[in-house]
Design a protein around this nucleic acid. Structure first.
Lengths: 171, 171
DNA sequence: TTGTTCCTGACAACTATTGCTGATAAAGTG
DNA sequence: CACTTTATCAGCAATAGTTGTCAGGAACAA
């Protein structure tokens, strides 16, 4: 991700105004190799600027995405996440319990030749359980038969993300 | 996907009741190699049984997913899609404009060895444009500068999916 | 400074999905 | 078949995440 100054310049160059609120978002993303949710960015920005609205953060994130400075990712965890790393090709680990994302270096297969479909991008998502959730759940040898087999992964991720994510899965 | 009779038996074996509503859902999915949204299933079921509620379809789909008879996929198009094909390993083409999904045979890379993350499943998503949307948008040589550069793919898919999907992208 | 354009922030609206509940109907039993 | 038990249905309300709306205000050009 580019520096705050570079982003400021790019915004100006594209006719977008640079406001203190936007710079606060820039600052938060510039020194960030995680994949924060919009909510998390909002919380971070409010720490130094308590009046910023969620709407503004969404808009700024979308502007950054439009300029290609970030990627907006939706991998089915119920919340959009922002990936500041657009320079190097990479893919993602997604924790099915808390929704946490991390970068991973796997080479994607070549887009297949599919008549009737113009492939543009290949995305690899490795789903699994992050260390924090593994520990929180009592380790890999947890007795089956409980909630784990009664819900789909999708449901579980959705439901637990809200409460457990920040508490258990921050690195 | 199993036949309606097999699904009926499996539901009974698991203590789930088999109702006409559920069998209508079974019937719709059994002869279906597309990846319908819950909404689309609901519409199909209502064609022969107009009182069935969306709630019931959701519940039946979740029951099917719990028994492993379908996969519930959320690839960030704003709607969950049901994949009746659980027998053969496969991945998906996703149209970024209408959200339409199709199966594709690409071999996934091996899950990387990642300390602090227990990989369970590797998912490959090929994003692009389906033939119908390509045609609807005026072909691949459409002049840039319009809506296409003013919005992220994510936004576009979200917004256009509701109206254009069934109209332009049914095979 | 002045005008214009764009942005902000509060709130409401919107979409997809799920919780709740009285009434209903499927399985099992006699 | 009649009866009992208990999961399910349908409809509505609620929820979370995201976006539209709009009055007021800030940033930039002249």
């Amino acid at each position: 991700m580019k520096s705050v100054e570079e982003l400021t310049a790019r915004f100006r160059a594209h006719g977008l105004r640079v406001t203190p609120q936007r710079q606060a978002v820039f600052r938060l993303l510039a020194g960030n190799d995680t994949h924060p949710t919009v909510e998390a960015i909002h919380a971070g920005v409010r720490a130094e600027m308590p009046t910023v609205s969620l709407r503004t953060v969404y808009q700024t994130v979308h502007d950054l995405a439009r300029l290609g400075e970030v990627h907006v990712l939706d991998v089915g965890t119920g919340q959009v996440r922002v990936d500041p790393n657009v320079e190097e090709a990479h893919h993602h680990l997604v924790c099915t319990r808390c929704g946490r994302m991390d970068d991973v270096a796997v080479e994607a297969p070549a887009p297949p030749a599919t008549p009737g479909f113009r492939a543009e991008r290949v995305e690899v998502i490795v789903r699994g359980t992050c260390a924090a959730c593994e520990a929180a759940a009592g380790g890999p040898h947890r007795a089956p038969g409980g909630a784990t087999v009664r819900r789909t992964e999708h449901e579980t991720a959705h439901e637990t993300a809200h409460e457990t994510q920040e508490a258990t899965c921050r690195s």
